[in-house]
Design a binder for these strands. Structure first.
Lengths: 271, 271
DNA sequence: CGGACACTTGATGACACTCAACTAGTGTGG
DNA sequence: CCACACTAGTTGAGTGTCATCAAGTGTCCG
């Protein structure tokens, strides 16, 4: 289950190879963890920015509150995720962050991050990669909210969580704990909580997803993936190691490729 | 008008201060531009990734195609924007990119970017900042699509474009050229083109936005901003210069702040 | 002049929202 | 141990926003 601790450094190495110096630099992130309880706020929209956080244990989420009292959840964070990276270049928080469970967090600030830029290409690439990965999650959620119906939205989201959890906990069985109320799911998916309830009933009747309180069971993952047309492309970020070998960079060697689209002619491999 | 060229380096300096070496490094990006015509594809989803692009002139957009033939637009790029950064750590394109107008692009690859990580903290921070800024745009669009009705969606989007254009072209008057068909707007906002048409009529009747083909006029920007509750927080990214001075980084000096949320007590200034 | 394309307008219906009543589980206090 | 409150979720009825389909207008362009 997800009570077991995640080895953060080992988790990072899924994104980008690291050497011993990198690892030493990054263990700093875990030196002075703080603990928050479920429901507690990490920070709120509009506050001055003074830190980023590495989520070591537990679940968290970020959200924007609307004037009419509704809200939109932007991210759900799992152990190993870095919170607040997106606000790197802003003066004030763009979203609030709160805990979904008891959680342990390591803090670090801009100077640490910029110091990292100076100390290690690989660590820099790692953070760049994590930011890119979060962005990929966001674009997928955008598609989900903009272009799918309630059933597809919910099924797709559950698929995504399943896949993300599997990445963090490779041994994850076909049932798992997902500490998200139906109201929270509604805030994530741009639905009403009532409709989330109905949609769960639909998925249960279709035999795709069973739910009991916060326990989710996916009897047949393949079937769910098929039903939602889920593709995990956007969850497979990894910085190829050979990129760090010194090689010929563009644009120095670029041939002016006037009029011919980049990559045109290189057809996508059949998956 | 937006026919006039944007000085890219000067544009970058709005995001992060640069020294002469940084500027020299970055001018490389413009050395071998390529030109694409309106409608032309830069790349397609699932293709192998071999480059990023700096948009020097013109407009572009990225999108995801759905199985049912609809699509979701993810970004609209303006001169000075970097395209494809989000795919930094992926093997294949997550979205297709096409031109909205004739456009000029500078290409660069991973090695150039990673080389930059080694050459300049400031340039690294600049790219980090651009990635963060694009993510902020995405989160705002997520809120827009998830939690607002058609009228608010359209008005908010027009506000956003107006503000973004003003950042690139400070002299922008209250009317401007926006090369987006109603179908395209529908694909951006998660609506149907028919409903976009109706919504434009509504905005016209409310006296908020007048439209003639691709020309948009905002007679009273203040009124529109007020009506949409628009806030430009998320467009104001900038890396503070003092962060580059050597100072005490966390987490080395972090005091374990057990149980007390980061930033708690620092109330947001009244805006 | 004809055809393509972008947009407009009307009619109809589906999907999801709101409101409201109800159930089940959980915690609290007497 | 039971009464009560509180929360999360379920279900039904009525409503509304927006999608879809279809017909029609205007403009551009050869």
């Amino acid at each position: 289950m997800d009570g077991s601790d995640v080895n953060i450094i080992r988790h990072f190495e899924k994104y980008c190879e690291l050497d011993d110096d990198d690892r030493t630099l990054l263990t700093e992130l875990e030196r002075h963890p703080m603990t928050l309880t479920a429901g507690e706020l990490l920070w709120e929209e509009h506050q001055a920015i003074d830190a980023f956080c590495l989520l070591r244990k537990g679940w968290a989420y970020s959200y924007r509150s609307m004037n009419d009292g509704t809200r939109q959840v932007l991210d759900v964070y799992l152990p190993g995720d870095v919170i607040g990276l997106r606000e790197f270049s802003f003066q004030r928080r763009l979203s609030s962050v709160a805990m979904l469970t008891e959680a342990s967090l390591g803090r670090f600030n801009h100077r640490y991050l910029i110091g990292l830029f100076g100390s290690s290409h690989r660590a820099t690439a790692l953070f760049f990669s994590m930011l890119a990965g979060q962005q990929a999650l966001l674009t997928e959620r955008l598609v989900n909210i903009g272009r799918r119906n309630a059933r597809e939205k919910l099924a797709h989201f559950i698929c995504e969580m399943y896949m993300r959890l599997k990445r963090v906990y490779p041994e994850l069985p076909q049932h798992f704990h997902m500490p998200l109320s139906q109201q929270m799911l509604a805030d994530i998916l741009g639905l009403s909580s009532v409709h989330v309830s109905r949609t769960f009933s639909e998925l249960r009747e279709a035999g795709l997803v069973y739910r009991d309180r916060n326990r989710i069971e996916i009897p047949d993952p393949e079937a769910l993936i098929e039903a939602t047309q889920f593709s995990d492309h956007y969850l497979r970020e990894r910085v190829a190691d050979h990129l760090f070998e010194s090689g010929k960079p563009w644009p120095e060697t670029a041939v002016a490729a006037k009029g011919s689209p980049v990559g045109q002619g290189r057809a996508a491999d059949p998956e």
